[in-house]
Design a protein around this nucleic acid. Structure first.
Lengths: 252, 252
DNA sequence: GAGTGGTCTAGACCACGAG
DNA sequence: TCGTGGTCTAGACCACTCA
């Protein structure tokens, strides 16, 4: 069963890659296209959604649908180390940071093993790719883990909150283990508004929990990244594996 | 600006969590609900999509919308080691495997540094969570990297293709580095059909590339996992970090 | 066969953006 | 101001499920 909006997407994709609709040019209006394809506008919009997800189209509200080329995605490396923190120079993102004090609340209390009334410092990173919002980062640190004021961030070394880790390091906090939990889901209504996307756009949601030598959770960070504009890269050496096939010694 | 389908979703969520619609019970039909809310059916269905993404609803074509509870997501660990491969016992997934020989083609030729005409062994893993398809895994291995026949897999140790790594290990191939590249995107038409989801469902797409000591790429695996049913967990020791704040020796 | 969800058309009104 | 995309209603037809 061929879906109508897929058929239309296939035809438009062909025309785009054939150059019939040139790079940077505006497509005919959705009304005109839906008439040309003898389709309803929702159906035609579903077709455009397919091409947008492929990076071939960009929508501009009030202006039109424009032909684009897929761009290489922004790369996110789990637990990037300070040594790599020229990341900000290589990153295509512009980052702005703010900080405020908040109460832990039940959710963070559970995660961090503190009282729900405990004070946290919450850093908010907003990353933009050109003028387009790309990702949101919220870093939470208990106000008690460092004696000096953590609120001050002079220079952004990474879009992903690495500066807070640097501040923690300077304050003598040694992180031992960082666990990251990644899911692919649709944007919530709030995220959609902040990232200027719709709730039908996939995002990569990451929860990062860092623990110090005493087992205390000293950083909980939540990241929401535009899914189709982000690649999470995990590189692991396989050399230190056991090397044995389990349950089979030399069954050659 | 409050969106109508969000308002309806909020109201339905309230009724579900309040027990007005009990767990396991069927909701009124979409036609009835759209009339009750004085909304169009597409709008009502958008509202149901929100609740489905939250794990509160499950759709059954021809039957109805049923109240469910969010289940803990399936966990995927990048480059799980054979030592952990009782994973299959802990996993809630049922796995079936098949293998076939295929030509590399241009895409894999580029990735693996082989000729497009080279033969690969392609393993396909289909994972089911109960009766629901959860994920698809395609493992590609050059037929030349191992002398023995790789086609035979006697027992599944992991839903993610770990068995192939075990076979490689037995054949004397030592993997040194594995890189995984993760993105969140919408399902393609083909994936949607195989996973019994719609093309508006987010998936976690993973490309895994394993290299041996000689720098050869000996395994390329593509995984497509239902996004809202999967958590990728990355745990990294932070102890072996440089520990220095870059560019600032003792600027205290 | 009756009822359900899956998809589509037709048409409307609103919010945004450029001239 | 006017054309654009964003959202919504109304109604239709088809495919699937189950009694």
């Amino acid at each position: 069963m061929a879906l109508r909006h897929q058929e239309i997407a296939d035809d438009l994709r062909r025309k785009i890659t054939a150059g019939e609709y040139a790079l940077g040019k505006r497509l005919p209006s959705e009304a005109a296209l839906s008439e040309a394809y003898e389709a309803g506008r929702p159906t035609l919009r579903d077709a455009l959604d397919v091409l947008r997800a492929e990076g071939l189209l960009a929508k501009r509200h009030g202006s039109g649908n424009y032909v684009t080329r897929p761009q290489p995605p922004v790369r996110y490396f789990p637990t990037a180390y300070p040594g790599e923190s020229d990341a900000v120079a290589r990153s295509p993102l512009r980052t702005s940071v703010s900080a405020m004090s908040v109460r832990a609340g039940h959710e963070f209390a559970l995660l961090m093993g503190v009282s729900p009334n405990a004070w946290l410092v919450k850093y908010t990173y907003a990353n933009h790719e050109g003028v387009t919002p790309h990702s949101l980062v919220h870093v939470h640190v208990p106000q008690t883990v460092a004696e000096r004021d953590l609120r001050e961030i002079r220079m952004v070394h990474s879009p992903w909150g690495e500066d807070v880790r640097n501040l923690l390091a300077k304050a003598g906090v040694r992180l031992t283990v960082t666990e990251e939990r990644l899911t692919a889901r649709l944007a919530t209504a709030e995220e959609a508004q902040l990232l200027q996307i719709t709730t039908r756009t996939p995002v990569m949601a990451i929860e990062r929990v860092a623990t110090d030598a005493k087992g205390r959770v000293v950083e909980v960070t939540r990241l929401v990244l535009r899914g189709e504009r982000t690649a999470v890269v995990v590189t692991m050496p396989t050399a230190n594996r056991g090397g044995e096939v389990p349950g089979e010694g030399s069954t050659d």
